[in-house]
Design a binder for these strands. Structure first.
Length: 572
RNA sequence: CGGGACGUGGCGCAGUUUGGUAGCGCGCAUCGUUCGGGACGAUGAGGUCGCCGGUUCGAAUCCGGCCGUCCCGACCA
Protein backbone atom coordinates (compact mmCIF):
# COMPACT_ATOMS: atom_id res chain seq x y z
CA UNK A 1 0.00 0.00 0.00
CA UNK A 2 1.10 3.51 -0.75
CA UNK A 3 0.44 6.00 2.01
CA UNK A 4 -0.25 8.67 -0.60
CA UNK A 5 -3.24 6.66 -1.82
CA UNK A 6 -4.48 5.45 1.55
CA UNK A 7 -7.32 6.98 3.54
CA UNK A 8 -5.57 7.56 6.86
CA UNK A 9 -7.02 10.81 8.18
CA UNK A 10 -4.71 11.56 11.09
CA UNK A 11 -5.40 14.60 13.21
CA UNK A 12 -2.78 16.93 14.52
CA UNK A 13 -4.75 17.73 17.63
CA UNK A 14 -6.62 15.59 20.11
CA UNK A 15 -10.34 15.33 19.43
CA UNK A 16 -12.21 17.46 21.95
CA UNK A 17 -14.66 14.86 23.21
CA UNK A 18 -12.30 11.94 23.69
CA UNK A 19 -11.20 11.18 27.21
CA UNK A 20 -9.88 7.62 27.22
CA UNK A 21 -6.44 7.13 25.68
CA UNK A 22 -7.71 4.54 23.24
CA UNK A 23 -10.56 6.77 22.10
CA UNK A 24 -8.26 9.74 21.61
CA UNK A 25 -5.59 7.79 19.74
CA UNK A 26 -7.92 5.74 17.57
CA UNK A 27 -9.64 8.90 16.37
CA UNK A 28 -6.40 10.85 15.97
CA UNK A 29 -4.70 7.99 14.20
CA UNK A 30 -7.48 7.69 11.63
CA UNK A 31 -8.75 4.27 12.78
CA UNK A 32 -12.33 5.23 13.64
CA UNK A 33 -14.91 7.98 13.36
CA UNK A 34 -18.02 8.42 15.43
CA UNK A 35 -21.40 8.34 13.72
CA UNK A 36 -23.48 8.92 16.85
CA UNK A 37 -23.27 8.19 20.54
CA UNK A 38 -21.89 4.68 20.91
CA UNK A 39 -21.72 3.97 17.19
CA UNK A 40 -18.49 4.08 15.22
CA UNK A 41 -17.31 3.64 11.68
CA UNK A 42 -14.12 1.65 11.32
CA UNK A 43 -11.82 3.19 8.75
CA UNK A 44 -9.35 1.06 6.76
CA UNK A 45 -6.74 1.04 9.51
CA UNK A 46 -9.30 0.14 12.17
CA UNK A 47 -10.75 -2.55 10.00
CA UNK A 48 -7.32 -4.10 9.49
CA UNK A 49 -6.69 -4.37 13.22
CA UNK A 50 -10.19 -5.71 13.81
CA UNK A 51 -9.63 -8.40 11.21
CA UNK A 52 -6.44 -9.48 12.94
CA UNK A 53 -8.08 -9.59 16.35
CA UNK A 54 -10.85 -11.72 14.87
CA UNK A 55 -8.34 -13.99 13.16
CA UNK A 56 -6.56 -14.72 16.43
CA UNK A 57 -9.84 -15.41 18.19
CA UNK A 58 -11.00 -17.61 15.32
CA UNK A 59 -7.79 -19.63 15.30
CA UNK A 60 -8.04 -20.34 19.00
CA UNK A 61 -11.70 -21.27 18.76
CA UNK A 62 -11.00 -23.64 15.89
CA UNK A 63 -8.16 -25.08 17.98
CA UNK A 64 -10.63 -26.23 20.64
CA UNK A 65 -12.95 -27.68 18.05
CA UNK A 66 -15.54 -24.93 17.78
CA UNK A 67 -17.69 -24.76 14.65
CA UNK A 68 -18.39 -21.37 13.14
CA UNK A 69 -21.94 -20.16 12.39
CA UNK A 70 -23.45 -16.91 11.20
CA UNK A 71 -26.73 -16.16 12.96
CA UNK A 72 -29.25 -13.42 12.25
CA UNK A 73 -29.10 -10.09 13.97
CA UNK A 74 -32.84 -9.66 13.57
CA UNK A 75 -34.83 -11.79 15.99
CA UNK A 76 -38.53 -12.21 16.65
CA UNK A 77 -39.46 -10.66 19.99
CA UNK A 78 -41.43 -13.81 20.71
CA UNK A 79 -38.22 -15.82 21.07
CA UNK A 80 -36.98 -13.45 23.76
CA UNK A 81 -40.27 -13.69 25.59
CA UNK A 82 -39.94 -17.45 25.75
CA UNK A 83 -36.79 -17.22 27.86
CA UNK A 84 -38.07 -14.27 29.86
CA UNK A 85 -35.27 -12.04 28.71
CA UNK A 86 -37.52 -9.72 26.77
CA UNK A 87 -38.32 -8.33 30.20
CA UNK A 88 -35.01 -9.01 31.97
CA UNK A 89 -32.95 -7.21 29.34
CA UNK A 90 -35.63 -4.71 28.37
CA UNK A 91 -33.46 -1.71 29.20
CA UNK A 92 -30.78 -2.62 26.66
CA UNK A 93 -32.94 -4.28 24.02
CA UNK A 94 -33.28 -2.42 20.74
CA UNK A 95 -36.71 -3.22 19.44
CA UNK A 96 -38.48 -2.42 16.20
CA UNK A 97 -41.56 -3.27 14.25
CA UNK A 98 -41.78 -4.51 10.68
CA UNK A 99 -44.37 -3.40 8.14
CA UNK A 100 -46.79 -6.12 9.16
CA UNK A 101 -46.61 -5.00 12.76
CA UNK A 102 -44.38 -7.89 13.76
CA UNK A 103 -42.25 -7.21 16.83
CA UNK A 104 -38.53 -7.62 16.31
CA UNK A 105 -35.41 -7.21 18.40
CA UNK A 106 -31.84 -6.60 17.31
CA UNK A 107 -29.83 -9.32 18.97
CA UNK A 108 -27.84 -8.18 22.02
CA UNK A 109 -26.48 -11.75 22.33
CA UNK A 110 -27.42 -15.11 20.87
CA UNK A 111 -28.21 -17.70 23.55
CA UNK A 112 -31.79 -17.89 22.33
CA UNK A 113 -31.08 -18.44 18.65
CA UNK A 114 -28.26 -20.91 19.24
CA UNK A 115 -30.34 -22.87 21.73
CA UNK A 116 -33.18 -23.01 19.25
CA UNK A 117 -30.81 -24.62 16.76
CA UNK A 118 -29.53 -26.94 19.46
CA UNK A 119 -33.08 -28.20 19.88
CA UNK A 120 -32.36 -30.22 16.72
CA UNK A 121 -29.91 -32.32 18.70
CA UNK A 122 -31.67 -35.50 19.70
CA UNK A 123 -29.14 -37.91 21.14
CA UNK A 124 -26.32 -37.86 23.67
CA UNK A 125 -24.25 -39.44 20.91
CA UNK A 126 -24.17 -36.09 19.15
CA UNK A 127 -22.63 -34.39 22.17
CA UNK A 128 -20.59 -32.48 23.01
CA UNK A 129 -21.16 -29.63 20.57
CA UNK A 130 -19.26 -26.36 20.53
CA UNK A 131 -20.61 -23.59 18.34
CA UNK A 132 -19.55 -20.02 17.78
CA UNK A 133 -19.87 -16.97 15.61
CA UNK A 134 -18.34 -13.53 15.28
CA UNK A 135 -21.30 -11.26 14.88
CA UNK A 136 -22.64 -7.77 15.44
CA UNK A 137 -24.49 -7.16 18.68
CA UNK A 138 -26.85 -4.34 19.52
CA UNK A 139 -27.31 -3.05 23.03
CA UNK A 140 -28.97 0.20 23.82
CA UNK A 141 -26.47 1.11 26.50
CA UNK A 142 -27.84 3.82 28.78
CA UNK A 143 -24.48 5.47 28.66
CA UNK A 144 -22.06 4.64 25.85
CA UNK A 145 -18.59 5.92 26.65
CA UNK A 146 -14.87 5.84 26.09
CA UNK A 147 -14.92 5.33 22.35
CA UNK A 148 -14.87 1.68 21.40
CA UNK A 149 -14.81 0.48 25.00
CA UNK A 150 -18.55 0.76 25.45
CA UNK A 151 -20.72 1.04 22.37
CA UNK A 152 -24.25 0.29 21.32
CA UNK A 153 -23.28 -1.63 18.21
CA UNK A 154 -20.23 -3.88 18.34
CA UNK A 155 -18.79 -7.17 17.22
CA UNK A 156 -18.57 -10.10 19.57
CA UNK A 157 -17.23 -13.58 19.33
CA UNK A 158 -19.79 -15.61 21.19
CA UNK A 159 -19.56 -19.35 21.64
CA UNK A 160 -21.89 -21.86 23.21
CA UNK A 161 -21.25 -25.35 24.46
CA UNK A 162 -23.82 -28.10 24.71
CA UNK A 163 -23.22 -31.09 26.92
CA UNK A 164 -25.04 -33.96 28.49
CA UNK A 165 -23.94 -33.21 32.02
CA UNK A 166 -21.98 -30.96 34.35
CA UNK A 167 -18.73 -32.83 33.80
CA UNK A 168 -18.98 -32.16 30.09
CA UNK A 169 -19.69 -28.50 30.76
CA UNK A 170 -16.69 -28.31 33.09
CA UNK A 171 -14.45 -29.71 30.36
CA UNK A 172 -15.68 -27.20 27.79
CA UNK A 173 -15.45 -24.37 30.29
CA UNK A 174 -11.86 -25.32 31.01
CA UNK A 175 -11.07 -25.52 27.30
CA UNK A 176 -12.43 -22.02 26.84
CA UNK A 177 -10.55 -20.74 29.84
CA UNK A 178 -7.31 -21.99 28.32
CA UNK A 179 -8.22 -20.71 24.86
CA UNK A 180 -8.93 -17.27 26.30
CA UNK A 181 -5.60 -17.21 28.10
CA UNK A 182 -3.93 -17.89 24.74
CA UNK A 183 -6.05 -15.31 22.91
CA UNK A 184 -5.22 -12.54 25.35
CA UNK A 185 -1.56 -13.44 25.34
CA UNK A 186 -1.51 -13.19 21.54
CA UNK A 187 -3.35 -9.88 21.68
CA UNK A 188 -0.72 -8.55 24.04
CA UNK A 189 -3.23 -8.14 26.85
CA UNK A 190 -2.26 -8.91 30.46
CA UNK A 191 -5.68 -10.33 31.28
CA UNK A 192 -6.31 -11.70 34.75
CA UNK A 193 -9.03 -14.32 35.18
CA UNK A 194 -11.31 -13.34 38.05
CA UNK A 195 -14.32 -14.80 39.78
CA UNK A 196 -17.33 -12.83 38.57
CA UNK A 197 -21.00 -12.29 39.02
CA UNK A 198 -23.19 -13.91 36.39
CA UNK A 199 -25.61 -11.00 36.30
CA UNK A 200 -28.52 -11.26 33.91
CA UNK A 201 -27.04 -14.35 32.26
CA UNK A 202 -27.89 -16.58 35.17
CA UNK A 203 -25.97 -19.77 35.73
CA UNK A 204 -23.69 -21.41 38.22
CA UNK A 205 -20.34 -19.80 37.67
CA UNK A 206 -18.46 -17.32 35.62
CA UNK A 207 -14.98 -16.02 35.06
CA UNK A 208 -14.13 -12.61 33.69
CA UNK A 209 -10.84 -11.82 32.00
CA UNK A 210 -9.84 -8.43 33.29
CA UNK A 211 -7.18 -6.09 31.97
CA UNK A 212 -5.99 -3.49 34.48
CA UNK A 213 -6.56 -0.06 32.95
CA UNK A 214 -7.64 3.36 34.14
CA UNK A 215 -10.40 3.48 31.54
CA UNK A 216 -11.95 0.32 32.95
CA UNK A 217 -15.41 0.14 34.42
CA UNK A 218 -14.98 -2.70 36.87
CA UNK A 219 -13.08 -2.99 40.11
CA UNK A 220 -11.12 -6.12 40.80
CA UNK A 221 -9.92 -7.25 44.20
CA UNK A 222 -6.61 -8.97 43.79
CA UNK A 223 -4.20 -10.57 46.20
CA UNK A 224 -0.60 -9.95 45.16
CA UNK A 225 0.53 -12.65 47.53
CA UNK A 226 -1.52 -15.70 46.53
CA UNK A 227 -3.19 -14.57 43.31
CA UNK A 228 -6.77 -14.53 44.58
CA UNK A 229 -8.75 -12.36 42.16
CA UNK A 230 -12.43 -11.48 42.06
CA UNK A 231 -14.64 -8.78 40.70
CA UNK A 232 -15.70 -6.60 43.64
CA UNK A 233 -19.21 -7.73 42.73
CA UNK A 234 -18.15 -11.08 44.14
CA UNK A 235 -15.00 -10.50 46.18
CA UNK A 236 -14.81 -11.22 49.90
CA UNK A 237 -12.23 -10.64 52.58
CA UNK A 238 -11.45 -11.80 56.07
CA UNK A 239 -12.35 -9.33 58.79
CA UNK A 240 -10.72 -9.05 62.18
CA UNK A 241 -13.15 -9.85 65.00
CA UNK A 242 -14.77 -6.92 66.77
CA UNK A 243 -15.07 -7.13 70.56
CA UNK A 244 -18.65 -6.31 71.52
CA UNK A 245 -18.62 -6.97 75.26
CA UNK A 246 -21.66 -7.98 77.24
CA UNK A 247 -24.83 -6.14 76.44
CA UNK A 248 -28.06 -5.61 78.31
CA UNK A 249 -30.80 -8.23 78.30
CA UNK A 250 -32.86 -6.15 75.93
CA UNK A 251 -32.23 -3.17 73.62
CA UNK A 252 -32.46 0.24 75.24
CA UNK A 253 -33.75 3.29 73.43
CA UNK A 254 -31.96 6.60 73.86
CA UNK A 255 -32.51 10.05 72.37
CA UNK A 256 -30.15 11.14 69.60
CA UNK A 257 -31.33 14.54 68.44
CA UNK A 258 -29.85 15.65 65.14
CA UNK A 259 -28.02 12.37 64.52
CA UNK A 260 -28.49 11.41 60.86
CA UNK A 261 -25.46 9.44 59.84
CA UNK A 262 -23.17 6.69 61.01
CA UNK A 263 -20.47 9.29 61.50
CA UNK A 264 -22.79 11.45 63.64
CA UNK A 265 -23.51 8.50 65.87
CA UNK A 266 -19.82 7.79 66.34
CA UNK A 267 -19.37 11.28 67.73
CA UNK A 268 -22.56 11.34 69.76
CA UNK A 269 -22.20 10.70 73.51
CA UNK A 270 -23.48 7.20 74.16
CA UNK A 271 -23.05 6.28 70.49
CA UNK A 272 -20.63 3.69 69.15
CA UNK A 273 -17.83 3.25 66.64
CA UNK A 274 -19.04 2.51 63.10
CA UNK A 275 -18.09 -1.15 63.30
CA UNK A 276 -20.42 -1.52 66.30
CA UNK A 277 -23.39 0.02 64.54
CA UNK A 278 -25.96 -1.60 62.29
CA UNK A 279 -26.63 0.19 59.00
CA UNK A 280 -30.21 -0.28 57.85
CA UNK A 281 -31.01 0.24 54.17
CA UNK A 282 -34.41 -0.04 52.59
CA UNK A 283 -34.53 -1.51 49.09
CA UNK A 284 -37.22 -2.54 46.70
CA UNK A 285 -36.48 -5.90 45.09
CA UNK A 286 -38.79 -6.41 42.14
CA UNK A 287 -41.22 -4.09 43.84
CA UNK A 288 -41.00 -5.72 47.27
CA UNK A 289 -39.70 -3.71 50.22
CA UNK A 290 -36.75 -5.34 51.95
CA UNK A 291 -34.43 -4.28 54.77
CA UNK A 292 -30.74 -4.71 54.11
CA UNK A 293 -28.48 -4.76 57.16
CA UNK A 294 -24.77 -4.08 57.16
CA UNK A 295 -22.10 -3.21 59.66
CA UNK A 296 -21.98 0.56 60.07
CA UNK A 297 -18.64 0.98 58.33
CA UNK A 298 -19.49 -1.30 55.42
CA UNK A 299 -20.94 -0.37 52.04
CA UNK A 300 -23.54 -2.43 50.19
CA UNK A 301 -22.39 -4.15 46.99
CA UNK A 302 -25.64 -3.97 45.02
CA UNK A 303 -24.74 -6.71 42.59
CA UNK A 304 -24.28 -9.09 45.54
CA UNK A 305 -27.80 -8.23 46.61
CA UNK A 306 -29.06 -8.96 43.11
CA UNK A 307 -27.19 -12.24 42.92
CA UNK A 308 -28.29 -13.33 46.40
CA UNK A 309 -31.96 -12.64 45.79
CA UNK A 310 -32.28 -13.16 42.05
CA UNK A 311 -34.10 -9.85 41.90
CA UNK A 312 -34.14 -8.12 38.53
CA UNK A 313 -35.21 -4.65 39.53
CA UNK A 314 -33.28 -3.40 42.54
CA UNK A 315 -33.56 0.15 43.78
CA UNK A 316 -33.20 2.08 47.02
CA UNK A 317 -36.49 3.19 48.56
CA UNK A 318 -37.48 6.82 48.29
CA UNK A 319 -37.69 8.92 51.46
CA UNK A 320 -41.49 8.89 51.54
CA UNK A 321 -41.57 5.14 51.03
CA UNK A 322 -39.21 4.68 53.95
CA UNK A 323 -41.35 6.80 56.22
CA UNK A 324 -44.49 4.91 55.24
CA UNK A 325 -42.81 1.59 55.82
CA UNK A 326 -40.91 2.19 59.05
CA UNK A 327 -42.34 5.40 60.45
CA UNK A 328 -39.06 7.26 60.58
CA UNK A 329 -36.62 8.94 58.21
CA UNK A 330 -33.32 7.54 57.03
CA UNK A 331 -30.93 8.26 59.88
CA UNK A 332 -33.05 6.64 62.57
CA UNK A 333 -33.84 3.33 60.90
CA UNK A 334 -33.48 -0.09 62.40
CA UNK A 335 -34.71 -3.64 62.04
CA UNK A 336 -35.47 -4.42 65.68
CA UNK A 337 -39.10 -5.42 66.00
CA UNK A 338 -39.73 -5.33 62.25
CA UNK A 339 -41.67 -8.44 61.32
CA UNK A 340 -43.66 -7.90 58.19
CA UNK A 341 -40.71 -6.96 55.97
CA UNK A 342 -38.03 -9.42 54.80
CA UNK A 343 -34.65 -8.70 56.37
CA UNK A 344 -31.41 -9.64 54.65
CA UNK A 345 -28.33 -9.24 56.80
CA UNK A 346 -24.67 -9.26 55.89
CA UNK A 347 -22.54 -12.08 57.24
CA UNK A 348 -20.35 -9.61 59.11
CA UNK A 349 -23.24 -9.04 61.54
CA UNK A 350 -23.60 -12.69 62.43
CA UNK A 351 -23.20 -13.35 66.17
CA UNK A 352 -22.78 -9.67 66.94
CA UNK A 353 -24.37 -8.13 70.03
CA UNK A 354 -24.47 -4.99 72.09
CA UNK A 355 -24.74 -2.94 68.88
CA UNK A 356 -26.33 0.41 68.15
CA UNK A 357 -28.99 1.02 65.53
CA UNK A 358 -31.95 3.26 64.71
CA UNK A 359 -35.20 2.82 66.62
CA UNK A 360 -37.58 3.69 63.74
CA UNK A 361 -38.46 6.77 65.74
CA UNK A 362 -36.92 10.02 64.55
CA UNK A 363 -33.99 11.16 66.69
CA UNK A 364 -33.94 7.93 68.64
CA UNK A 365 -31.55 4.99 68.56
CA UNK A 366 -31.26 1.65 70.33
CA UNK A 367 -28.20 0.33 72.08
CA UNK A 368 -27.50 -3.16 73.31
CA UNK A 369 -28.89 -4.82 70.22
CA UNK A 370 -28.07 -8.50 69.81
CA UNK A 371 -28.62 -9.18 66.13
CA UNK A 372 -29.70 -12.79 66.37
CA UNK A 373 -31.76 -12.22 69.50
CA UNK A 374 -33.45 -8.97 68.54
CA UNK A 375 -33.74 -8.97 64.76
CA UNK A 376 -35.87 -11.34 62.69
CA UNK A 377 -33.26 -11.89 60.01
CA UNK A 378 -34.75 -13.86 57.13
CA UNK A 379 -31.47 -14.54 55.34
CA UNK A 380 -27.77 -14.10 55.89
CA UNK A 381 -25.76 -13.21 52.82
CA UNK A 382 -22.44 -11.73 51.82
CA UNK A 383 -23.49 -8.26 50.78
CA UNK A 384 -20.68 -5.90 51.65
CA UNK A 385 -18.24 -4.25 49.28
CA UNK A 386 -14.66 -5.29 49.80
CA UNK A 387 -12.11 -2.53 50.35
CA UNK A 388 -8.45 -2.35 49.46
CA UNK A 389 -6.24 -3.32 52.36
CA UNK A 390 -8.63 -5.87 53.85
CA UNK A 391 -7.28 -9.37 54.32
CA UNK A 392 -7.31 -11.84 51.45
CA UNK A 393 -9.86 -14.60 52.18
CA UNK A 394 -7.38 -17.24 51.03
CA UNK A 395 -4.07 -16.17 52.54
CA UNK A 396 -4.67 -13.11 54.72
CA UNK A 397 -2.36 -10.73 52.85
CA UNK A 398 -3.76 -7.24 52.17
CA UNK A 399 -5.93 -7.08 49.05
CA UNK A 400 -5.47 -4.48 46.38
CA UNK A 401 -8.36 -3.13 44.32
CA UNK A 402 -7.80 -1.85 40.80
CA UNK A 403 -9.80 -0.64 37.80
CA UNK A 404 -10.02 -3.06 34.92
CA UNK A 405 -11.61 -3.57 31.54
CA UNK A 406 -13.68 -6.70 31.08
CA UNK A 407 -12.07 -8.18 27.97
CA UNK A 408 -13.85 -11.50 28.06
CA UNK A 409 -16.39 -13.40 30.13
CA UNK A 410 -17.17 -17.08 30.29
CA UNK A 411 -20.30 -18.53 31.91
CA UNK A 412 -21.64 -21.83 33.01
CA UNK A 413 -25.28 -21.47 32.07
CA UNK A 414 -26.65 -24.84 33.07
CA UNK A 415 -30.01 -25.88 31.67
CA UNK A 416 -31.97 -22.64 31.90
CA UNK A 417 -32.10 -21.86 28.19
CA UNK A 418 -32.35 -25.47 27.11
CA UNK A 419 -35.38 -25.93 29.33
CA UNK A 420 -37.06 -22.74 28.18
CA UNK A 421 -36.63 -23.64 24.53
CA UNK A 422 -36.95 -27.39 24.69
CA UNK A 423 -33.40 -28.31 23.76
CA UNK A 424 -33.21 -31.86 25.05
CA UNK A 425 -31.59 -35.14 24.08
CA UNK A 426 -32.09 -38.74 25.05
CA UNK A 427 -29.37 -40.04 27.36
CA UNK A 428 -27.97 -43.61 27.46
CA UNK A 429 -31.01 -44.75 29.40
CA UNK A 430 -33.39 -43.26 26.85
CA UNK A 431 -34.34 -40.52 29.26
CA UNK A 432 -35.02 -37.02 27.96
CA UNK A 433 -32.60 -34.51 29.51
CA UNK A 434 -32.00 -30.82 28.85
CA UNK A 435 -28.68 -29.78 27.38
CA UNK A 436 -26.19 -28.33 29.82
CA UNK A 437 -24.88 -25.12 28.34
CA UNK A 438 -22.01 -22.73 28.61
CA UNK A 439 -21.61 -19.36 26.94
CA UNK A 440 -18.41 -17.51 26.23
CA UNK A 441 -17.90 -13.99 24.92
CA UNK A 442 -15.14 -11.68 23.73
CA UNK A 443 -15.88 -8.20 22.45
CA UNK A 444 -13.79 -7.58 19.34
CA UNK A 445 -13.67 -3.77 19.22
CA UNK A 446 -13.44 -3.53 22.98
CA UNK A 447 -10.34 -5.71 22.85
CA UNK A 448 -8.95 -3.60 20.03
CA UNK A 449 -9.37 -0.51 22.19
CA UNK A 450 -8.01 -2.28 25.26
CA UNK A 451 -4.84 -3.10 23.38
CA UNK A 452 -4.41 0.63 22.78
CA UNK A 453 -5.08 1.39 26.44
CA UNK A 454 -2.24 -0.94 27.35
CA UNK A 455 0.12 -0.21 24.44
CA UNK A 456 0.61 3.49 23.87
CA UNK A 457 2.98 6.30 24.76
CA UNK A 458 3.02 10.07 24.39
CA UNK A 459 3.61 9.74 20.64
CA UNK A 460 0.76 7.41 19.89
CA UNK A 461 -0.15 3.77 19.64
CA UNK A 462 2.41 0.98 19.97
CA UNK A 463 0.70 -2.02 18.38
CA UNK A 464 1.95 -5.50 19.11
CA UNK A 465 3.09 -7.01 15.81
CA UNK A 466 0.27 -9.56 16.06
CA UNK A 467 -2.46 -6.97 15.48
CA UNK A 468 -0.67 -4.02 13.89
CA UNK A 469 -2.51 -2.53 10.90
CA UNK A 470 0.79 -2.74 9.00
CA UNK A 471 3.84 -4.54 10.28
CA UNK A 472 6.33 -2.20 8.66
CA UNK A 473 6.45 1.18 6.99
CA UNK A 474 9.07 2.28 4.50
CA UNK A 475 9.44 6.02 4.93
CA UNK A 476 10.95 7.77 1.94
CA UNK A 477 12.31 10.94 3.47
CA UNK A 478 12.71 12.87 0.24
CA UNK A 479 10.42 11.71 -2.52
CA UNK A 480 11.97 13.80 -5.25
CA UNK A 481 15.37 12.23 -4.70
CA UNK A 482 15.53 9.53 -7.38
CA UNK A 483 17.84 7.24 -5.46
CA UNK A 484 15.64 7.44 -2.33
CA UNK A 485 12.53 6.75 -4.35
CA UNK A 486 13.98 3.80 -6.25
CA UNK A 487 15.56 2.27 -3.16
CA UNK A 488 12.48 2.81 -1.01
CA UNK A 489 10.24 1.24 -3.60
CA UNK A 490 12.59 -1.70 -3.96
CA UNK A 491 12.74 -2.41 -0.22
CA UNK A 492 8.97 -2.07 -0.06
CA UNK A 493 8.51 -4.58 -2.85
CA UNK A 494 11.00 -6.98 -1.29
CA UNK A 495 9.14 -6.82 2.00
CA UNK A 496 5.86 -7.55 0.27
CA UNK A 497 7.44 -10.49 -1.50
CA UNK A 498 8.63 -11.76 1.89
CA UNK A 499 5.05 -11.70 3.17
CA UNK A 500 5.37 -8.63 5.36
CA UNK A 501 2.35 -6.34 5.58
CA UNK A 502 4.00 -3.13 4.59
CA UNK A 503 3.03 0.38 3.60
CA UNK A 504 5.35 2.82 1.86
CA UNK A 505 5.12 6.44 2.90
CA UNK A 506 5.59 8.12 -0.47
CA UNK A 507 3.87 11.37 0.44
CA UNK A 508 5.49 14.64 -0.48
CA UNK A 509 5.53 15.79 3.13
CA UNK A 510 8.13 16.98 5.53
CA UNK A 511 10.01 14.14 7.22
CA UNK A 512 8.67 15.17 10.62
CA UNK A 513 5.08 14.75 9.47
CA UNK A 514 5.79 11.28 8.19
CA UNK A 515 7.72 10.19 11.27
CA UNK A 516 5.02 11.50 13.55
CA UNK A 517 2.23 9.82 11.60
CA UNK A 518 4.07 6.50 11.61
CA UNK A 519 4.47 6.76 15.36
CA UNK A 520 0.89 7.91 15.97
CA UNK A 521 -0.50 5.06 13.92
CA UNK A 522 1.83 2.69 15.74
CA UNK A 523 3.50 0.65 13.03
CA UNK A 524 6.05 -1.64 14.74
CA UNK A 525 8.98 -1.23 12.32
CA UNK A 526 9.99 1.77 10.27
CA UNK A 527 12.60 1.70 7.54
CA UNK A 528 13.78 5.22 6.83
CA UNK A 529 15.24 5.77 3.38
CA UNK A 530 16.92 9.09 2.70
CA UNK A 531 19.86 10.66 0.88
CA UNK A 532 21.89 10.98 4.05
CA UNK A 533 21.95 7.25 4.68
CA UNK A 534 22.11 6.23 1.06
CA UNK A 535 25.33 8.20 0.69
CA UNK A 536 26.76 5.56 3.04
CA UNK A 537 24.78 2.76 1.44
CA UNK A 538 22.51 2.33 4.44
CA UNK A 539 18.92 2.79 5.56
CA UNK A 540 17.73 3.17 9.12
CA UNK A 541 15.48 0.79 11.04
CA UNK A 542 13.48 2.16 13.97
CA UNK A 543 11.57 -0.10 16.34
CA UNK A 544 8.42 1.64 17.56
CA UNK A 545 8.19 -0.10 20.92
CA UNK A 546 11.73 0.65 22.04
CA UNK A 547 12.67 3.60 19.89
CA UNK A 548 15.90 1.78 19.05
CA UNK A 549 17.56 2.58 15.74
CA UNK A 550 20.02 0.60 13.73
CA UNK A 551 21.58 1.01 10.34
CA UNK A 552 21.15 -1.67 7.72
CA UNK A 553 22.69 -2.02 4.32
CA UNK A 554 20.21 -1.61 1.49
CA UNK A 555 20.76 -5.18 0.48
CA UNK A 556 20.01 -6.74 3.86
CA UNK A 557 17.22 -4.39 4.94
CA UNK A 558 14.17 -6.34 3.77
CA UNK A 559 15.26 -9.75 4.97
CA UNK A 560 16.31 -8.32 8.31
CA UNK A 561 12.97 -6.60 8.86
CA UNK A 562 11.08 -9.67 7.66
CA UNK A 563 12.90 -11.73 10.28
CA UNK A 564 12.01 -9.28 13.04
CA UNK A 565 8.39 -9.27 11.93
CA UNK A 566 8.39 -13.04 11.96
CA UNK A 567 9.74 -13.08 15.52
CA UNK A 568 7.20 -10.49 16.55
CA UNK A 569 4.31 -12.49 15.18
CA UNK A 570 5.47 -15.57 17.05
CA UNK A 571 6.24 -14.01 20.39
CA UNK A 572 2.77 -12.64 20.95
C1' C B 1 -32.78 8.14 34.59
C1' G B 2 -30.26 12.13 38.26
C1' G B 3 -26.18 15.95 38.19
C1' G B 4 -22.69 19.02 35.22
C1' A B 5 -20.71 21.02 30.65
C1' C B 6 -20.81 21.92 25.61
C1' G B 7 -22.85 22.65 20.28
C1' U B 8 -19.55 28.70 15.69
C1' G B 9 -15.74 26.34 8.05
C1' G B 10 -12.69 19.46 7.94
C1' C B 11 -10.14 19.63 13.25
C1' G B 12 -9.09 22.67 17.78
C1' C B 13 -11.02 27.23 19.62
C1' A B 14 -12.33 32.89 20.49
C1' G B 15 -16.56 35.97 20.03
C1' U B 16 -22.27 35.44 23.80
C1' U B 17 -21.55 38.88 29.99
C1' U B 18 -22.55 44.61 27.35
C1' G B 19 -27.35 42.62 20.32
C1' G B 20 -24.89 46.06 14.98
C1' U B 21 -24.47 41.08 10.27
C1' A B 22 -18.36 36.20 12.06
C1' G B 23 -12.73 35.71 13.62
C1' C B 24 -7.95 32.91 15.07
C1' G B 25 -4.65 28.49 14.78
C1' C B 26 -4.17 23.94 12.18
C1' G B 27 -5.68 21.60 7.78
C1' C B 28 -7.06 22.40 2.36
C1' A B 29 -5.90 24.72 -3.06
C1' U B 30 -2.21 27.45 -6.28
C1' C B 31 2.76 29.58 -6.79
C1' G B 32 7.69 30.35 -4.96
C1' U B 33 11.58 29.29 -1.45
C1' U B 34 12.60 25.08 1.66
C1' C B 35 13.43 19.58 2.91
C1' G B 36 16.26 13.60 8.22
C1' G B 37 11.48 15.23 13.49
C1' G B 38 4.68 18.52 12.55
C1' A B 39 8.89 24.84 7.44
C1' C B 40 8.34 30.05 5.48
C1' G B 41 6.06 33.77 2.29
C1' A B 42 2.15 35.25 -1.04
C1' U B 43 -2.69 34.44 -2.91
C1' G B 44 -7.26 31.81 -2.29
C1' A B 45 -11.54 28.45 -1.26
C1' G B 46 -14.59 27.08 2.63
C1' G B 47 -19.45 28.79 7.81
C1' U B 48 -28.08 28.19 7.17
C1' C B 49 -23.13 30.18 14.24
C1' G B 50 -27.33 22.44 16.21
C1' C B 51 -32.89 23.02 14.97
C1' C B 52 -37.70 25.55 15.59
C1' G B 53 -40.20 29.64 17.47
C1' G B 54 -40.24 34.45 20.02
C1' U B 55 -38.37 39.59 21.43
C1' U B 56 -36.03 43.56 18.46
C1' C B 57 -35.10 48.28 13.27
C1' G B 58 -31.38 44.41 13.82
C1' A B 59 -29.90 37.96 17.14
C1' A B 60 -24.01 33.55 17.11
C1' U B 61 -25.24 36.99 21.30
C1' C B 62 -31.56 37.90 24.82
C1' C B 63 -36.14 34.48 25.92
C1' G B 64 -38.87 29.62 25.25
C1' G B 65 -39.00 24.73 23.34
C1' C B 66 -36.57 20.71 21.03
C1' C B 67 -32.34 17.88 19.24
C1' G B 68 -27.37 16.28 19.70
C1' U B 69 -22.52 15.26 22.12
C1' C B 70 -19.23 14.63 26.28
C1' C B 71 -18.14 13.98 31.65
C1' C B 72 -19.72 12.13 36.83
C1' G B 73 -23.30 8.89 39.04
C1' A B 74 -27.11 5.09 38.41
C1' C B 75 -27.18 1.01 35.03
C1' C B 76 -24.42 -2.70 32.25
C1' A B 77 -23.29 -11.21 29.35
Amino acid sequence: MRWSQAFIPTLREDPADAEAASHRLLVRGGFVRQLMAGVYSLLPLGRRVRTKVMRIIREEMEAIGAQEFVLPELHPAELWRRTGRYEVMADVLLTLEDHRGGELVLGPTHEEVFTLLAAELTSYRELPQLWYQIQTKFRDEPRPKSGLLRTREFTMKDSYSFDLDEEGLDRQFRAHYDAYVRIFRRLGLPAIPVVASSGAMGGSGSVEFMVPAAAGEDDVAHCPSCGYAANVERATSTLPAVEDGEGPAAPEAFPTPGVRTIADLEEFPGGAPADRQIKTLVYFLDGRATLVLLRGDHALQEQKLRDATGAVEVRPARPEEIRTLLGADAGSLGAVGVEDVPIIADLALRGRRNLVTGANVDDTHLRGVDVERDVAVSRWEDLRAVRAGEACPDCGAPLEVFRAIEAGHIFKLGTRYAEALGATVLDVDGKQVPLVMGSYGIGVERNLATIVEVHHDDKGIVWPVSVAPYEAVVTIVKVDDTDSWETGKRIYEELEALGVEVIVDDRDERPGVKFNDAELVGIPFRVTVGPRGLAEGVVELTTRATGEREELTVAEAATHVARLVEEGRRSE
